[in-house]
Simulated scan of single mutants.
Amino acid sequence: MCAIEIEPILSTPRLRLRRPRRADAARIAEYCGDYDVARMTSRIPHPYGIEDANAFLDRQDLKDADREATFAIEHPDEGFMGVVSLFENPEGRSEIGYWLGRPHWGRGYATEAADRTLVWAHETWGRRFVVAGHASDNPASGQVLCKVGFLYTGEVKLQPSAARKGETPVRMMVWLA
C-alpha cells in the first residue's frame, strides 16, 4: 500500500475533521491544560502549555500516513474543539483515541468524530479491526465507543497516564468492520 498523498478532510453533519495546524496551538494548550481533559488520556501530560501544543504539532509531520492519522475536530461556529487519532499501539494494532475540550462535552461531538474516523479508516486503509480503551473512571468515553460499535473485551489493563503520573485501569474494547 502506498502512502496517502492528499490531506484528508472529513465531514459529518456538524463537524469537519482536518489536519491540525499551527493556528490550533493556543486552543490545544488551553484544552489540554485542563487536568480533567488530560487525565482521561494516556499521553497528555499535566501541566500542559503552548510548548507542548507546538511539540504535538511538530510530530504530525513525522507520522507514517499508512498507519497513523490525526484529525482536528472543528465546528463551523465553535472552531477547534479537540482531536481524534488513529495510531499503531505497542502490540501493533490500530487504536483510536480522542479528546474534546470541556466546553464541548456531552453534545455528541466525540461520537460523530470517532464514527467518521472509523469509516475513513475502513474505506481508506481497509481496517477491519480497531482497538480502544477508556479509563475505568470515564464511563462517558465508554458510551462514545459503544455508540460507534465497539464491544468490551472483558480485559482491564493498567496503562500509563502522563497526567496522573502513574498507571490507571483501562477497559479495553474492539471494533470490527
Rank of each mutant, 00 (worst) to 15 (best):
C2H: 02
I6D: 13
E7I: 06
P8F: 02
L10P: 10
S11A: 12
R14S: 14
L15H: 07
L17I: 04
R19V: 08
A23M: 13
A25Y: 00
A26T: 00
D34G: 07
D36M: 13
D36L: 10
S42R: 08
I44S: 07
P45Q: 07
P45S: 12
H46Y: 05
P47M: 02
P47N: 10
A55Q: 09
T70E: 10
F71E: 11
I73M: 05
E74N: 14
H75W: 15
D77M: 09
E78D: 14
G79Y: 03
F80V: 05
M81Q: 15
L86P: 01
E88P: 06
R93L: 11
S94A: 15
Y98H: 00
G106L: 09
A114M: 12
A114P: 15
D115R: 05
R116G: 06
W120L: 10
W120C: 05
H122F: 08
E123L: 13
T124I: 08
V131N: 08
G133Y: 05
G133S: 00
D137V: 01
G149V: 09
F150V: 01
F150M: 03
T153R: 13
V156T: 14
V156N: 07
K157N: 02
K157G: 05
K157A: 00
L158Q: 13
L158T: 13
Q159N: 14
S161N: 14
A162E: 11
K165V: 03
P169T: 03
V170L: 03
V170Q: 01
M172F: 06
V174T: 08
W175C: 02
W175F: 00
